[in-house]
Simulated scan of single mutants.
Amino acid sequence: MAGGWASDGAVQDQIDSSIEDAVARARGQLPQGESLSRCEECDAPIPQARREAIKGVRLCVVCQAEQDKANAGGAGYNRRASKDSQLR
C-alpha cells in the first residue's frame, strides 16, 4: 500500500533497486585477469589453490581480510530518506 503520489509497488521497487546496486557494486570489485603468485601488499606467496579458486587474485588471505575490513563501510543507501535512518 503506497501513499501520496507513489504507486503501489514503490517500496518494493526501492528495495529491488538497492539490491541491484549492491550486486553491481560487488561484481565491479571482483578481481580480473591473471592471478599473482605473490601478494601485492606484503610479498607473501599466494597458495596455488587460492589462485585457482579466485581468478585474478592479487592479495594473500591476511591482506585481503584487512582490506575487506577497511571497506566494510556503512549500511548502504537511504533511498526513502526517512527520519529514522537519518538519526542513526
Score class of each variant (00 low, 15 high):
Ala72Pro: 05
Ala24Ser: 14
Gly4Ser: 08
Ile19Lys: 10
Gly33Glu: 11
Val62Gln: 10
Gln12Lys: 15
Ala49Glu: 14
Pro31Met: 02
Ser7Arg: 11
Ala2Leu: 07
Ala72Gly: 06
Gly76Arg: 01
Asn78Ser: 13
Gly73Glu: 07
Lys55Arg: 10
Cys60Ala: 02
Val57Lys: 02
Asp8Pro: 10
Asp8Ala: 14
Ala2Trp: 04
Ile19Arg: 13
Gly73Met: 05
Val11Asn: 07
Cys60Asn: 03
Gly33Asp: 09
Glu41Asn: 15
Asp16His: 11
Arg51Ile: 00
Gly28Met: 09
Val23Ser: 04
Arg79Tyr: 06
Leu36Asp: 02
Glu66Val: 06
Glu41Gly: 03
Cys39Leu: 00
Leu87Glu: 15
Gln14His: 12
Gln67Pro: 01
Gln29Asp: 08
Asn78Pro: 03
Met1Thr: 04
Arg80Phe: 03
Arg80Val: 06
Ala24Phe: 11
Val11Lys: 12
Cys42His: 05
Gly3Met: 09
Gly76Thr: 04
Ala53Met: 06
Ala65Pro: 01
Val23Met: 11
Asp13Ile: 05
Gly3Gln: 10
Glu40Lys: 14
Cys42Lys: 03
Ser82Leu: 07
Trp5Glu: 11
Cys42Glu: 02
Asp43His: 12
Ser85Gln: 09
Ala24Pro: 03
Cys39Arg: 13
Gln12Pro: 01
Ala44Arg: 12
Ser37Leu: 10
Ala53Asn: 05
Ala6Trp: 00
Ala26Phe: 13
Leu59Trp: 12
Ala22Trp: 00
Ser18Tyr: 00
Glu41His: 13
Ile54Asp: 05
Val23Ala: 11
Tyr77Lys: 14
Ala2Glu: 11
Lys83Phe: 01
Ile15Tyr: 11
Ile54Phe: 02
Cys39Asp: 09
Leu59Met: 08
Asp8His: 08
Met1Ser: 13
Asp84Trp: 07
Pro45Ser: 07
Cys60Leu: 01
Asp8Trp: 07
Gly4Trp: 00
Gln32Ala: 12
Ala24Asp: 14
Glu66Gln: 15
Val57His: 00
Lys55His: 11
Ile54Tyr: 04
Trp5Pro: 05
Cys42Trp: 04
Asp43Lys: 03
Gly4Leu: 02
Ala2Cys: 05
Val11Cys: 04
Gly4Lys: 01
Asn78Val: 04
Cys39Ile: 00
Gln14Met: 11
Ser37His: 15
Val62Trp: 04
Leu30Ala: 13
Val62His: 10
Leu30Trp: 03
Ala65Asp: 14
Gly73Arg: 05
Asn71Lys: 13
Leu87Pro: 00
Lys55Ser: 06
Met1Lys: 06
Arg88Cys: 03
Cys60Phe: 02
Ile46Gln: 00
Ala72Ile: 06
